[in-house]
Computed example of a mutant assay.
Amino acid sequence: MKSLKLATVGTVLFSTLLLSGVGHVSAAPGPIPANRDTNAQVKFIEDESPTDPTDPTDPDPTDPVKPVDPTDPEKPVEPGTNGPLSLDYASSLDFGEQLISNKNHSYFAKPKFLRGADGEIDTKNPVPNYAQVTDKRGGEKGWALSVKQNGQFKSVKESRELVGAEITFNNGEVASASSSKAPSTVKKSFSLKADGTGVAENVMAASKGEGFGTWVYRSGDVSTMAESIELSVPGATVKDADTYKTTLTWTLTDVPGNTEPETPGN
């Protein structure tokens, strides 16, 4: 009986040793270096806020400027339209003070002035007159910019028309800091119809796959801007000693432009 008891005790002790891990052989270590993949993401949404005007000679949207209205220098710059596709700015034109003449004459819109960092008008560094468009929709969906004249110049006092007067834009070009493909439609030169019915379609237009970011359509560069927007007035037209005014309407649409670029003069 004792020997049976001892044998039983010995069996229990042996089992306990096995369960406690005595004599256990360790598994082989995993591979080093060890790898594990994790996720990272960013989500973009359309920006509805307006975009400020930029310098047309260096249109960097991170460095906005304050253009000066040529006929009312103290007038604040009106904000651009809201939305991810926006018309940010368009220059007012000033053809200056001219002598009454009975000869045919051409007058040129003055270049644009900007305010410096000190808030003062920087008269030493004029820039071209321009219009600015920003596309922050993503996907390069395309858009088109046009302009029309809303009737002939009329005198302020008597509302007499400046018969035969015509505005012509020359040296049109685009500029941007964007890496997107440039708008394929750019009108180098065009004249406005003074009866209010004419529209210069697609002055600047981006087809699909073009035109993301901020783009300016400017009339000339620093060397040609002084004679890039012309007002021709017939000598036979009767003129009052008065100021003559009209308005232009710039229109931005989300309709993509033509796929073929405009040729100079079109």
Rank of each mutant, 00 (worst) to 15 (best):
K2Q: 14
S3G: 07
K5H: 06
K5T: 01
A7L: 11
T8S: 14
V9E: 08
G10D: 03
G10T: 08
L13H: 01
L17N: 00
G21E: 04
G21L: 02
V22Y: 02
V22W: 00
G23P: 09
H24R: 14
S26P: 14
S26R: 08
A27V: 10
P33G: 06
A34Y: 15
N35H: 11
R36W: 10
R36Q: 11
A40E: 12
Q41G: 13
Q41K: 12
F44C: 00
D47F: 10
P50T: 03
D52I: 01
P53Y: 01
T57D: 13
P59M: 03
P61C: 06
D69C: 02
D69S: 10
D72I: 00
P73Q: 01
K75P: 05
P76I: 03
P79Y: 01
G80L: 07
G80H: 10
N82H: 07
L87I: 03
A90F: 05
A90K: 00
S91A: 11
L93I: 00
E97F: 07
E97Q: 15
S101P: 00
K103D: 07
N104W: 09
Y107P: 02
A109Q: 00
K112C: 12
D118A: 04
G119V: 09
P126Q: 08
P126F: 02
Q132G: 02
Q132E: 15
V133W: 01
D135R: 14
D135G: 09
K136D: 03
R137G: 00
G139A: 10
K141W: 04
K141V: 02
G142V: 11
A144C: 10
S146A: 13
N150F: 01
V156W: 01
E158L: 07
E161V: 04
A165V: 01
F169K: 03
N171I: 03
N171H: 15
E173H: 11
S176C: 04
S176E: 09
S176M: 04
S180L: 08
P183H: 09
P183Y: 10
S184W: 04
V186A: 04
V186L: 04
F190P: 09
S191L: 05
A194H: 12
A194Y: 12
A194V: 04
G196S: 09
N202K: 15
A205M: 07
A205P: 03
A206D: 07
A206I: 02
A206Q: 05
W215P: 03
G220H: 13
D221M: 02
T224P: 11
M225F: 08
M225C: 03
A226M: 07
E227D: 15
E230F: 02
L231G: 06
L231M: 05
L231H: 01
V233D: 08
V233P: 05
G235D: 08
V238S: 09
A241L: 10
D242V: 01
D242H: 07
Y244W: 04
K245N: 14
L248G: 08
T249P: 02
T251M: 10
T253K: 14
V255L: 12
V255D: 14
V255A: 15
E260W: 02
E262M: 03
E262Y: 06
E262A: 13
P264W: 00
G265V: 02
N266V: 05
